[in-house]
Design a binder for these strands. Structure first.
Lengths: 346, 346
DNA sequence: CTGTTAGCGCGTTCAA
DNA sequence: TTGAACGCGCTAACAG
């Protein structure tokens, strides 16, 4: 392994001079700098990350954490896209990304704390948040620099989110506009902030149209196709009448398609469906599925930028900026009993 | 920040004793160990990763690299699943995972070399390989510990792969068994080893049935739905007759569905389709798509285990073990003009 | 079984 | 503008 001493020897200077060249100090003669650079080149020298970390007390590494509930969403393109976004920014600013996938929220909390305490990462990007999330509370208590992708329900934290309330409201209004009258809402894990927000959007749409919000029409489902199916079957068995569903995720919407097939309902004539996340394959589903498109890549870039900016000015008082990105309702056949298929995508 | 010295002081021992406790040395009295552990507990002590790395010359971190061509495949669940697999094993063995997503193979090579030279990672898991891949050549030259997910065409390297040749052969034989007579092969980037292997499987199937291998029936496509569509249209314009397609990825197979819709071909009556990767949504595609299921999660666990085992015994001569995992053809309607839909999945 | 000492490779004083 | 000396937190070799 070639060290700073080897370079110094070859260039005929002291190690500290080499260090200055690396740091880009200007208190150095052009000639010396050139000699040092040549020596570095020749020896293929690369500074040892651990030694730098130790001396400067930072790691140039950001941790990205995903917990179990999210892991399921791993089946759609959301997380990969977020990661691609984060990576683009990190790379441009010479940061690395450490990922930590946990099975439970306790494990997630342990892992995050460890990464921070070990000084393995300078900050964290947290990918989902629960109501009263213990991870977030801990991170705040320990004053860990972090950005949340999503929203913290209890207090402002640095975060990047898409406007779930607005999006779910749009989706529901769209169903109403299409003449559906009894819309049910199939939620994911109700402990997640994102679920709560989407549910609120659904409610707001009903209220805006002076329609009653009926708890019977709201149901929580396992985050899977099967879960979506079972939730609707359950509602049906309870005798709740409905002719459309706003599902908190595409997987749940696919469960709704299963439900319709199973009970002989025609989509969109008898039954309208909208989902969330607009996975790339939605246009190919039968029928093509209406869905809310989330800017996943952008969530990643924005989160990373926000975090790195924060780290770059540590003394600056931390304003708990919350960035909100727009989402878009992609209308396809599964929710269109009025418009002709020609006028819509997919 | 609490260091080993603080613990030592509180426990009334020397720093090296604390270090021994951490390392689990047995040359230590039970009583002292208990005192030290209590002090560690009390101070919430966690060893600094950089200092350990520096002293022990390892990082307990594995790099995972993805390059552009793969990034597209990011839209299906393959990479997330691989990562989940890697993560499970890494976590169990106290390793961390650093990810590096590059746009070009040159950039990928740079990033990997840097991670190694900086000593930021102890080894690498490389996610895709090209024919004559410069990254792999470099890693071998520099004697970097790495495992390839895939296969190296030129020489044996530590790798974990699914049997692409066999899988493509199965897929093609299945189409032949279903009575399709003119099967074309739509390949991804022909520079990738995986593309070559799948193409070879296709050829082997034809040869086994004494059918001619016709270069006119083999075409390379952009890795996208649109690319799959254009490739088939191109073949059609060239006057190549065909009634079925073996596509090297589900995305390309979706392009084939588009093609069939566009030219009024019925699937599976007029036109049979099989894809690769069996994305979770394939059962919902219209028609449900036959596809080769890859054990992505297992590829991840096996790759990580292989790498960590190698790192664990560095002096042992490196046998270039190549692990091959089976894949499975999931038959659905898109390729079944003989069997009844009841007898098949999806 | 335990303490002392000397690095690991780099950044950063303080002098010169 | 440059070099010498020390410290970052931990491990390991050597004494005892």
């Amino acid at each position: 392994m070639t060290t700073i001493k080897d370079v110094a020897k070859l260039a005929g200077v002291s190690p500290s001079t080499v260090s200055r060249v690396i740091a880009g100090s200007n208190r150095i003669s052009a000639e010396t700098r050139a000699r040092v650079l040549r020596a570095m080149e020749e020896l293929n020298y690369v500074p040892n990350a651990a030694a730098r970390s130790l001396a400067r007390a930072n790691s140039w590494t950001i941790g990205f954490t995903i917990a179990r509930q999210a892991e399921q969403a791993f089946s759609n393109a959301f997380f990969p896209e977020v990661m691609r976004g984060m990576s683009t920014v990190a790379q441009a600013r010479n940061y690395n990304i450490l990922i930590s996938i946990s099975r439970t929220i306790e494990e997630e909390r342990e892992k995050c704390l460890q990464l921070i305490r070990e000084r393995r990462v300078d900050g964290l990007i947290v990918s989902t948040s629960r109501i009263n999330d213990p991870l977030i509370r801990t991170l705040l208590e320990e004053d860990v620099p972090f950005v949340l992708i999503g929203r913290c329900a209890e207090r402002p934290v640095l975060s990047v989110n898409n406007d779930n309330v607005q999006a779910a409201k749009m989706a529901t209004l769209h169903l109403l506009d299409q003449g559906y009258e009894n819309i049910v809402f199939v939620s994911g894990d109700s402990g997640l902030v994102v679920s709560r927000d989407r549910l609120n959007g659904y409610k707001q749409a009903l209220i805006e149209r002076d329609l009653p919000v009926d708890q019977m029409r709201i149901i929580e489902a396992d985050f899977s196709i099967e879960g979506g199916f079972r939730a609707l079957r359950e509602l049906r068995e309870r005798g709740v009448p409905f002719d459309a569903v706003c599902a908190a995720d595409d997987l749940l919407a696919l469960g709704a398609i299963r439900f319709a097939e199973h009970f002989g309902l025609r989509i969109p004539e008898d039954f309208g469906i909208v989902g969330f996340n607009d996975s790339p394959l939605m246009p190919f589903i039968h029928p093509p599925l209406t869905s809310v498109r989330i800017l996943a890549y952008e969530l990643g870039t924005e989160a990373m930028e926000l975090l790195l900016d924060t780290l770059a000015s540590p003394n600056k008082p931390r304003t708990m900026k919350e960035i909100i990105l727009p989402s878009e309702l992609i209308v396809r056949r599964s929710s269109c009993r009025l418009k002709t298929p020609d006028s819509i995508r997919g």
